[in-house]
Simulated assay, not measured.
Amino acid sequence: MSNPATVIAAGGVVWRERRGTRQVLLVHRPRYDDWSLPKGKLTAHEHILLAARREIEEETGQHVLLGPPLGVQRYPVRRNGSTAQKLVHYWSATPTDDSGFEPNDEVDEIAWLSVDKARSRLSYPRDVDILDALEPAVSVSSTLVLVRHAEAIKRKDWDGKDTVRPLNNAGTAVSERLTGVLAALGANRLISSDAERCVATITPYASSINRHIHLWPEISERGYDADPDGLRGLSERAWAPGRVTVVCSHRPVLPALARELGLKVGKFSTGSFLVAHRLGDGRLVHERFGAS
């Protein structure tokens, strides 16, 4: 008999500051009579960042934005009469709105507690480990999302200028799905190559938040080929304090662009992206994701 597939889940440590005290949000599950961090399994084809945000909101009534990753739990669970591995990914999460908690069969109670009290209330040591990773993650000074444009019509199938070559149907679908991911991260500043395929990748999100896309010809293929030194100085503008900035560019430009931004990246498939957080102490925390 083959081993059951790994169960993938996502959640977060929801935190806020109240009268100089940091509080975190725990959930009580009546089925297990335990106190834990909000989390849940991914639905079919759901991006893991969207799953984390959705599960937090469903279990707590809190609308949140996701910050730096806090770690991954690995432990066995029973599934279909066998034992499977469960992987739970966690992110820092800050509330933006409270739609109201309603007790249900899965979660019948929530509690805002100080970090010390939450540490004592949590039922599982693995949750305490995730909670302990929160402290350095709350000091984010700026966030950068580096994106390779979604899939475009192939060059050989396009008769017009390369700069206006559009996304194909698959690329358009990716750009639509990317909207939810960028919303979960709270992206609020948008920068793109002036090539159509880059602009179109983040246009659905720009429209959803009614934001202008800042065009940077320096990060287009044409602009970079004409003046590779044109990237100098972009880092300071991209790492805007207090902002979550999206930068969309091209495969040939991304290695040089990443170096300018202080990031280490490998190959990017179309529609893939990297999320990097600059912490208050100057350290960078980053993670890569495939096309949404």
Rank of each mutant, 00 (worst) to 15 (best):
R222K: 12
L49S: 14
T163A: 10
A291H: 08
D127H: 13
H214Q: 15
H89W: 00
S82V: 01
A291V: 09
E221I: 13
L234R: 02
P68G: 10
T94D: 01
E176V: 05
S99F: 00
L190R: 09
A291F: 03
A226P: 00
H250N: 08
R222D: 11
S123W: 02
G262N: 08
R232F: 09
T143S: 15
D105K: 12
G280C: 08
C248V: 15
T201F: 02
E58F: 06
H212S: 10
V72W: 00
K41A: 15
Y75M: 04
A291W: 00
L25F: 03
G242T: 13
R119P: 05
V285G: 11
W15S: 12
W158V: 14
V147W: 01
A184S: 08
H277N: 15
Y205A: 12
A200G: 07
P38E: 10
I219L: 07
W15T: 14
I191N: 15
S292W: 04
T43M: 07
Y32S: 12
V72S: 11
P38T: 13
W35Q: 10
R177Y: 06
R259P: 00
S92D: 02
L65E: 11
R251N: 10
S141Y: 04
V247M: 03
L134V: 14
L254R: 05
T143D: 09
D227R: 07
P204S: 11
V14P: 03
L178F: 05
G186H: 05
S249D: 02
L131C: 14
I130T: 14
N169P: 00
R278N: 10
K86L: 00
I209W: 03
P30S: 09
L70C: 07
K86A: 07
S2D: 11
P252W: 01
T21K: 04
S99L: 02
R79C: 00
I110Q: 06
M1F: 10
S220P: 01
A150K: 06
N210M: 09
H47M: 06
A118H: 10
T270G: 10
I209E: 10
N80L: 03
L134W: 14
T163W: 01
D97F: 06
V107F: 00
S235V: 00
G81I: 00
V247I: 12
Y224W: 09
Y90F: 14
P217Y: 12
S142A: 15
A183G: 15
T201Q: 07
Y224V: 01
P228E: 05
V253K: 03
A5K: 09
I153F: 02
L131G: 12
C248D: 05
Y205I: 12
R78N: 08
G61F: 04
Q62T: 03
A152K: 05
G271R: 10
Y124H: 15
D162S: 12
V138K: 06
I56E: 13
S207T: 15
K154A: 14
D129T: 13
E17C: 08
L26E: 02
H89N: 02
T60W: 04
V27N: 07
V253S: 04
L65A: 11
D108E: 04
W158E: 05
Q62F: 02
E236M: 04
A184C: 03
K117L: 15
A187C: 07
L182Y: 05
P241T: 10
S175E: 06
L234I: 11
Y75P: 09
D281P: 06
L231I: 07
P252Q: 06
D281E: 09
V14N: 08
T83I: 09
L42S: 13
D162C: 07
